[in-house]
Amino acid sequence: MTAINTDKPVGESAGRKQMPWERYVQGHHWRNAEDEFDAAKFGMWLFLSTEILLFAGIFVGYAIMRMLHPQAFSNGSHYLDVRWGGLNTVVLLISSWTVAMAVRAAQLNQQKWLRVNLIITLICAIAFFSIKLGLEYIPKWSVGKRPGALFNYPFASDPYEPMWWSIYYTATGIHALHVLVGAGLLTWVLVRSFKGIYGPKNYAMVETSGLYWHLVDLIWIFLFPLLYLIH
């Protein structure tokens, strides 16, 4: 992999047609493209802070309910299979790495690697979601390990185990929703990358979607120990 020197106008000197990203100009209300790029990133960081605070509500709920019903939460974490949680953690960490590589590829105008990295990230997203749904949600739900009033698992040893499942499904469910949103964003980026829209002059969308994907990863990094590892 050799980096292309982006100081020179790529393509034009080689007699090729200009790629769409080379023709990119900032929105009419911006003084220059750097300001626009900084603003896009800043805006995304602010949005991520709102996401953190949204999940903070769930984490506080977890803490309070764990304090009220420690035995139910201890039982609950034993019901979860740490191997599937661990595998999903690995899957998400790999996807975080590939999405970072996708941003790098866009910065360096490596169009092929941009797409390859995005596709690997999306495969990871699908893998995460399949493991979550097929190996965790469905088997548990079908034996009655359900949230709140829907709970009808006959072998529960603590009366407050439904509360554990409420927290479990709420936390991982909202997280899974974020996985879907993130995957949707990255799919959009992938589709547009085939048109050559992203390159050294225009990669704000790749970068901000990547940031969002890192957030999805980060939330899971906290959910995994809280739900699977602490007994």
Binding site: L54, P147, G148, S166, T170
Partner: peptide, 20 residues
């Protein structure tokens, strides 16, 4: 965002009776 999650939990409470 905090009211977001609060109201979402309230909706879950009403629809799924999560009990929080």
């Amino acid at each position: 965002p905090v009211i977001g999650i609060t109201l979402l939990l309230l909706v879950f409470e009403r629809i799924f009776h999560v009990g929080i």
